[in-house]
Nucleic acid binder design. Structure first.
Lengths: 335, 335
DNA sequence: GTGAAAGCGCTAACAC
DNA sequence: GTGTTAGCGCTTTCAC
């Protein structure tokens, strides 16, 4: 049978409350007592029962991780963040339950239910969702500690963490400009995402600063997938054949485009320069190695977990911005 | 305050046990009673307290997902499987806790502790680990429902699920042979992994069947990373310049190699044919689209969860093999 | 510094 | 078919 604190108490000739206090590092136990308890616990192979702990304390050392239940392509960042989230949580004995929720079929109140069902201490919303998604409204009304990625949802109980997307897009565009390009197209992802709009802002900032006209810098809207990138670049070549460089709002679109261009006999970067966004790790093995803006997913994962722990411990919601970094690769030529 | 079954009982003028029975779909309650309870539950906004349920029933609807806490490159499959695992589990109200364990620093007994700490119903070991890893020994001794991926650990309480690696590697090699190649190299990953040895077996089966000699079919050992692939292809060109096709035991090695080859001015597939393994989704956006063997991660994820649920419900350990599928891409030429 | 006792929300005998 | 009651393993007053 399983060893409980009652067994330890018996073994040590003490009461269960003393054992409990000793085990939990509370004050009010003699060093000697604590030592005896700890020893007995080890000897008997005691493993605490968290269900019991959670029942009485009305909270668990469990947090929810929410990701959108969509295609894998839509959420590469999550998977680079996860180990870091887990590591930061584990430092404080927290664990993560993964919820894959259907972004489309979201039912109001779902999140609150998820949280209260298991007495979760809080949650991290990892997938970017359209800014007007009901989940965000619910978070604004809730009083559960929550951290939201890639979206601004700031309350007493909710922190945000984002890459500085405006800066990232600015850096990418600026790099193309610095390489002598003036005919620069931007292929963006879904407009409903806050990050898309911010990336656009960064693009515009750089092009305007360089005095490039709207005609020189066409903007296309796509869907963040490789296929979408392929289609967009086809359209781009048709409508704006004078383009010399394209900034794709993520790496997969850039890859899909380059793959298509190669088949069409258009060489990257000799005939067309391409830069992506995200810093997906396969980019460095791409042919050619893909210029991109690296998002610091380890930092985001770690900070997201830390922000959540702060909220759980009574802190207030805040916003954190992570700096991106340019990776030049070999997909951009100098004119 | 939070609504409990006691509140519902009061509200309906019944006892808590009746409410409990009604809520849990047990027999022994009149339809009318159940209906009243269900209605009251909804009206009052009742959310069950799983901690309490778990405490008394001594088990939870929680399973552990174990992944190795190594570089992202080492575990792409997991991330394609996760949504399917989650979906299959959710069908039976199960949820997954993610444990990132340090494969290197594994302490004997760790897994059992993880499982008993939260009364987990079982676990799925998702990352391939060296066959002699102590974790597998522990699983062989344990009596917790466990599903192991990519390794043969079969007990009363432990099922396996694997891709048919021998077949997959055979298909890849056979494809190269069918395209007229006779000088075929194989760049494998870590030998300590069961899947590596099986992939080798498939390679050998195909080459022997075609009557190719050992000299014609050199074997190199690498590490499943893009960088490793790059280094291996360099070595290969030096030692076996007569090679016309290379089979890499995963896609990232193949990508790293192609990326290097392009820089070195060697065209794929014109001068050297390349096929990978895994079917990583970025392969289809690669330049050129990468020939590979597609592992059916959705099926593996779903089946893994189902196997675990079977074990939890008293079933016995079994082995399941999933068929891989050839994707021809454009990285292999016909001689 | 330690013990006794109540109770967290729920299930499962056992009675009726 | 429904109610009563005794816990599940633990924390936390409140005494002493």
């Amino acid at each position: 049978m399983r060893v409980s604190i009652r067994d330890i108490a018996k073994h040590c000739n003490m009461s269960v409350s003393t054992v409990s206090r000793a085990l939990n590092g509370d004050y009010g136990v003699k060093d000697k007592t604590r030592k005896a308890v700890l020893e007995a616990a080890k000897e008997l192979g005691y493993v605490p029962n968290l269900s019991a702990k959670e029942l009485v304390s009305r909270k668990s050392k469990l947090v929810g991780l929410l990701i959108d239940d969509s295609d894998y392509e839509a959420r590469p960042a999550f998977f680079e963040q996860l180990p870091y989230i887990n590591k930061a949580l584990a430092l404080h004995q927290y664990r993560a339950i993964i919820y894959t929720l259907n972004g489309m079929g979201y039912v109001d109140g779902e999140l609150s239910d998820i949280l209260s069902l298991r007495n979760l201490s809080g949650c991290i919303v990892l997938s970017p969702l359209p800014s007007d998604h009901p989940l965000y409204d619910e978070i604004r009304r809730m009083s559960y500690p929550t951290v939201v990625l890639e979206n601004t949802v700031l309350t007493r109980y909710c922190s945000n963490i984002n890459t500085d997307e405006v800066l990232g897009a600015y850096m990418a565009t600026r790099y193309l400009i610095d390489c002598g390009h003036r005919r620069i197209a931007f292929v963006n992802g879904f407009e409903a995402f806050e990050m898309s709009r911010e990336r656009l802002e960064g693009f515009l900032k750089a092009t305007e600063e360089a005095g490039l006209s709207k005609d020189e810098t066409p903007i296309l809207w796509s869907d963040y997938t490789g296929n979408g990138g392929k289609k967009s670049v086809q359209e781009l070549l048709r409508l704006h054949p004078e383009t010399t460089a394209v900034f794709f709002a993520n790496d997969f679109m850039a890859m899909g485009a380059i793959s298509y261009l190669a088949e069409a006999g258009i060489r990257v970067p000799d005939q067309l320069s391409v830069i992506g966004y995200d810093g997906h790790f396969t980019g460095k093995y791409y042919n050619p190695p893909l210029a991109t803006v690296i998002i610091d997913n380890p930092a985001i994962g770690t900070r997201a977990a830390e922000l959540l722990l702060e909220l759980i411990n009574g802190g207030s919601g805040k916003t954190v911005r992570i700096k991106p970094q340019l990776f030049k690769g070999k997909s951009v030529s100098t004119l």
